[in-house]
Structure formats: structure tokens, C-alpha cells
Amino acid sequence: MGVVRRVLLDKRVLTGDSIIHRLDPRPKFFFFLWISVLAYVFYDYVLTALFLLVILALAAAAGILRRILLVLAVIVLPGFAFAIPILSVLFPWNETLMFKLHILGFELPLYYEGFTWGLSWPLKIAVCVSSALLFYLTTEPGELIALLFKLRLPYKFIYMVTITLQLIPLLLDEIQTIYQAQLSRGLRTKANPVKRIWNFLALVIPLTLSSLMKVQTRAIALESRGFSAPVRKTCLYDIRLRAGDHLFFSAMIAVTLLLAYLYLLYGFSPIVHLKFYYVAG
């Protein structure tokens, strides 16, 4: 199974104890939202790379740097690999020639606009992905539930989020069983695309049917335990803001002010001074 999937799966055995783990989930959550928004407010690959470095430094402090880098290698690196060469040559708004590349007798002009576009966007995504992982991988499931309670979300929503996260590993276990059974009945993974779709069906149909059976039973069990009672539900978990959390928040506010100042002064590209954010037409 792929790296990205494994990150979610391993969550079950992942518990850590670090400065980042000990933070209240609220500062971590707002940091994730905050830096993701910042990545979109600015269009400046140096600044975005700085954001990424800050996240990676925090990830290192939390002891999860390797896992995050692994995910980035799988879902962001190919972004650069495809986007930079293609857009450097073919981006319709290319005008500033960087240099000409000579391969196999061909002359390929590489342009700055396409190059920066192909560099900036995957970087933005890298910031968003790594900040999400930083939050998720350092937050215990109980803390996550407490966070959702504190955000005053309706209980139904909290329940749905939590149960989805718990259902996934259960369903994956079930897939393993079905997969083994189908393998022993002659399912082959090295097959042509049409055959592979049939393989997909052979796994997905039994899984879905058994899942649907569970839906009804669980609904009945929930109902029998007072799920629909029209009262405010009790949260069984405690979270508390400590000095470190306040410090973290203060740092975020200070940086926000600084960045706001830079934005007012230089616009969306304060360091490398790119010319346009969105393409026109």
C-alpha cells in the first residue's frame, strides 16, 4: 500500500511525546489553518519555501520529519518533476527567457514565468500537506474530539468525523481478509486494465454489502443508547491552554502583523517580486 495510505494507517500505533505533541490541539489546528491560508495569500516561492521550512522544523521537533518528507516525496515531488519542465517551456504567459537548453539537437528555450509557476504551486501544496500532517500526526484522537467540541460543532458532525476515522482501519482490515480470499481463488494483480477493474469489483462488492449490513445495526445500537436525546452531549476529554500554547499563539500574531506589513508594502510577492498571481484568460 502507498505511503500516503500508510500515514493514516500507522496513526493507530503512533503516539509520541514531544513539545509539539504536548501543545493543546487548538494552537496546532489554528497554525495549520493559518499557514495554509498564508501559502495562498502570497505568491512568492522564496516566502513559501520559508513557510515550508518552518513546518518542517516543527515536524523535526515532533519527531515526524521523516514521515512528512516521505509523503512530500510521493505527492509533491512529482509535481515539480512534471510542472517545472512542461511549464518552463510551454506556459502561455512566458516572456522572460532564462536560458536555452540543448538536447538531442533540439533547442528548448526555458522561461522564467512558467518556471516560477511550476515551482510556486507545488510548494504551496507542500505547505498545506505538511501542515495538515503536522497537526494530525501530533494530535491524539481524544484531543481531536475535544477540539471539535470546543469549536462548538454540532455533535452529529463530531460523531461523523470520529467514526469515519475509526471505520477506515476497520474496513482496511476487512479488505485484507477479502483480498486474501480472492487471491486464493485466483485473483491476479498483474492483468490488463479491464481485468483489473473486475478485480476491483471482486473486492468492493463484498466489502460494500457487509458494510451496509453494519450501518443498520449500528444505527439501532446508537439510537438505543440515547444518541438522539435532545440535550448537550458531554465531552469525555479535557484540553487546557497552557503557557506554551499562549506563547505559540502570540508568535503567530506577531508573524501575522509582520507579514501584513510586508503585504501592504510589496504586495503578494514581497521577496522575488513576481508579476501576476492568477493568469488572465
Partner: peptide, 17 residues
Amino acid sequence: SGVALTVEEEVGFGLSM
């Protein structure tokens, strides 16, 4: 309940509801 992480929470689920 499907959401409780421990035996204790599972037993407390109904009351918290």
C-alpha cells in the same frame, strides 16, 4: 458506539449522549 477509544469511554458513551 464506534467512536470510543477505550473500554471506559465506551461504557460512558450512553451517559454522555
